[in-house]
């Protein structure tokens, strides 16, 4: 059983589940469950669901299923909702020191917009340099790190303007 967010031509994604078993499969669209099956017809497939059926030509390209059906091409994306959450970074309001050390470069300043993954500070610790990156898109509130100054483990190096509670 797998659940994925499936979107047709970039449309609002549907939560689709698939239970496989033997020759039969069940597709879940939200709460409704439909019998589904596929069979090979030459180089194409015959897809059946809920008493409907059609011939499709189909290719899987990473997260995208390219389908030719009903005289058109459809780009159906398949994404893991859990993975999508990971992709949006750690969502934290603060970037903390992963180890004690000294800031050797500060690349952002208060009020600056940063994107997820953008280096903000470079610290040096045990002769190794580490980039401190933004955990999400946001705006820098305060830069606590100063070049040449040391800090302990877990010290806040940069804080971002906290996210509003929108969409909660």
């Amino acid at each position: 059983m797998t659940f994925r967010d499936v979107s047709i031509n970039g449309d609002v994604p549907h939560n689709v589940g698939l239970t496989r078993g033997g020759k039969r499969s069940r597709i879940w669209f939200g709460a409704s469950c439909l019998e589904a099956a596929r069979a090979t017809v030459g180089q194409n497939w015959e897809v059946e669901v809920d008493g409907l059926s059609t011939h499709v030509s189909l290719v899987v390209d990473k997260d995208m299923v390219l389908i030719h059906a009903f005289g058109r091409t459809w780009r159906v994306s398949v994404t893991d909702p859990a993975e999508r959450a990971l992709r949006t970074g750690d969502q934290s309001d603060v970037a903390k020191a992963p180890m004690p050390g000294v800031a050797i470069s500060v690349m952002v300043s208060s009020g600056q917009a940063v994107i997820d993954g953008q280096p903000m500070v470079i610290i040096e610790s045990m002769k190794m340099q580490t980039e401190i990156i933004a955990g999400r898109d946001g705006i820098v509130d305060t830069v606590h790190a100063r070049v040449g100054e040391s800090f302990p483990l877990g010290a806040t190096l940069v804080s971002l303007v906290p996210l509003t509670t929108e969409g909660s």
């Binding site: 994925r4 549907h14 689709v16 597709i27 439909l34 409907l52 299923v65 059906a69 398949v78």
Partner: peptide, 11 residues
Amino acid sequence: KLLLAAAALSH
């Protein structure tokens, strides 16, 4: 329905 099924059955 058919498109989602086709995608699920193939991905």
